[in-house]
Amino acid sequence: MSTVFDQGLQPERTALAWRRTGLALLGGSLVAARILPETLGAWAAIPGLIGVAAAASLLYAIHRRYRQQHQRLTAEGDRSPIAGGRLVAAMAGFLLAAAIVSIVVTIALTARG
């Protein structure tokens, strides 16, 4: 059993928040993959399927990063946090792209009347 290195368990709370974000992205993407083709045609499932792939990648990256951080924090010696913000940057980029696609879909639906 490992020792508790942080009484507030901040890494665990952060990992849980990222998991909720990944699961929300997965759920929204599955709904989009199901609903968009009925409205806009078969090609419209592509954004939803891309979202499912992105959510799966995000959930894998979250799990891997948490394990690395946990091993580092419970090891003797260097307990410095893992550097880098690639996960946050990737998520922000994906959400920006999803917002743009949402705007395009809304405009397309409005134009159809």
Rank of each mutant, 00 (worst) to 15 (best):
A54V: 15
Q68W: 13
R67D: 12
I50P: 09
Q71T: 09
G51A: 09
R19M: 14
R34S: 11
T39A: 14
Y66H: 15
A45N: 03
A90M: 05
S57G: 14
S2E: 01
A61D: 13
P37Y: 03
R34L: 12
S102W: 10
L16V: 13
P81G: 15
T21P: 02
A75P: 01
L26Y: 04
I50F: 14
V101Q: 03
S80Q: 14
V104K: 11
E76V: 14
L26P: 05
L49G: 14
I82G: 08
G8W: 08
V88E: 10
L59R: 06
M1S: 06
R112I: 06
A92D: 00
G48W: 12
Q69K: 09
I46S: 04
L58C: 02
S2G: 00
G84A: 13
Q10C: 00
P11Y: 06
S2Y: 00
P81C: 15
T74L: 07
R67I: 10
I35S: 01
L73V: 09
L109M: 13
G85V: 14
L26D: 05
A53K: 10
I35Q: 02
E76P: 07
L73G: 04
A53Y: 07
T74N: 10
L109C: 12
R112G: 10
P47S: 07
T74C: 12
G85P: 06
R67A: 11
A17L: 12
P11V: 08
T74W: 04
L59E: 08
A55F: 07
A92E: 00
E38C: 01
G51R: 07
G41N: 09
V101G: 03
A24I: 08
T21Y: 08
T74V: 15
T110H: 13
V31N: 01
Q7G: 03
G41Y: 10
A44V: 13
I107Y: 12
A24F: 12
E76T: 15
T106P: 00
Y60L: 01
T74M: 07
E12M: 03
R20W: 15
P81I: 15
P37L: 05
T39S: 11
S57H: 08
I103F: 13
R72G: 05
L49Q: 15
A98D: 03
P37T: 05
S80F: 03
L58E: 01
P37R: 05
A32I: 03
L9D: 07
L9W: 09
A97V: 13
G51P: 12
Q7F: 02
Q7P: 00
A97G: 11
Q71W: 07
R79V: 12
T74Q: 10
A108V: 13
